[in-house]
């Protein structure tokens, strides 16, 4: 019975992922994210170096080393574009089904609400990974195509091989994915509150922006360690020598806290909700 249930959970998760990534909207979101490194790469290729100290960090390194396209793209994408796409996907999880009237049918099967919620959250998490990988991988490919590729100069001034540079880029993608998991949990909770998916999407994206505005106000610095966006730019610690794993751990702990709190809230709401559609 239990094995059967696990099998059906996996099947539910699989079909959920298929539905998510087959949607034109998901593909469009990923394509929009892929456009960021393409734009950066092409603009710098055509217009040349912007000069030291201008534009986002690492922008001036791209002409020397194409591997920095991905890093620059992540820096550009993380304040708005990535949270926006996460907001769309996470805000849609439950509210989207409710608005389509398909939530009832999902729950008719002996699936159980908790299981559905978990599967929905996991698929949103997979989208986080897909989104951050898209930016980094497309950035690396664009950089590879347009600029010379060579040993990577780290922030500490030491240089590592291309292979290790690529590994560190993958590490950055993982860091960014973890960074977005807390926001996904918030989106999931907001999605259980409403049957209008746009509301949950907008609320999630707005929260991401609000958190960063609060993070920029020194008057509220007592609040900063609690913001889910606090460590978003901390992935630079993976570009140091030696690598500073402390911020990765801090970030993971913070996001786990958000997943715990908003996951529990989402459970409370979704398990007690009257499903009418």
């Amino acid at each position: 019975m239990r094995a059967e249930r696990r099998g059906s959970t996996a099947a539910l998760f699989g079909s959920e992922l298929l539905t998510l990534f087959r949607r034109r909207r998901t593909v469009a979101l990923l394509a929009a994210l892929a456009l960021i490194p393409v734009l950066i790469g092409v603009a710098i290729r055509l217009a040349g170096d912007a000069g030291s100290g201008r534009g986002p960090a690492f922008l001036d390194q791209i002409t020397n080393n194409g591997l920095f396209v991905g890093v620059t793209a992540i820096i550009v994408a993380i304040p708005l574009f990535l949270p926006l796409t996460i907001g769309v996907v996470a805000g849609d999880t439950i509210a989207g089904e409710a608005s389509h009237g398909t939530l009832r049918y999902l729950l008719i099967a002996p699936a159980g609400r908790l299981r559905l919620l978990a599967v929905k959250y996991l698929s949103a998490g997979v989208f986080c990974l897909a989104a951050s990988l898209t930016v980094v991988v497309v950035g690396t490919l664009v950089g590879w195509a347009l600029f010379p590729i060579g040993p990577v100069t780290l922030l500490s001034g030491s240089t590592v091989s291309v292979g290790e540079g690529l590994l560190r880029l993958l590490g950055i993608a993982a860091y960014v994915c973890v960074s977005l998991l807390g926001l996904s949990a918030i989106g999931l909770f907001l999605s259980t509150l409403t049957t209008v998916p746009v509301g949950a999407m907008a609320a999630t994206a707005i929260l991401a922006v609000v958190a960063q505005i609060i993070g920029a106000l020194p008057q509220l610095d007592w609040l900063h360690p609690w913001l889910f966006s606090e460590h978003w730019l901390g992935f630079a610690d993976l570009l140091r020598d030696p690598v500073q794993w402390a911020s990765f751990a801090d970030n993971a702990l913070l996001q786990a806290g958000y997943i715990l709190v908003f996951g529990a809230l989402a459970c409370g709401r979704f398990l007690t909700k009257d499903i009418l559609s």
Binding site: S52, F58, I75, L155, S156, L233
Partner: peptide, 24 residues
């Protein structure tokens, strides 16, 4: 450990190096 940058002071047999990644 600056955000997205780093300043380093190295002291070794070679003397003292001050490196600023933002200024390169």
């Amino acid at each position: 450990l600056d955000p997205l940058a780093e300043r380093n002071v190295y002291r070794n047999a070679d003397g003292v190096w001050i490196y600023d990644s933002a200024e390169k």
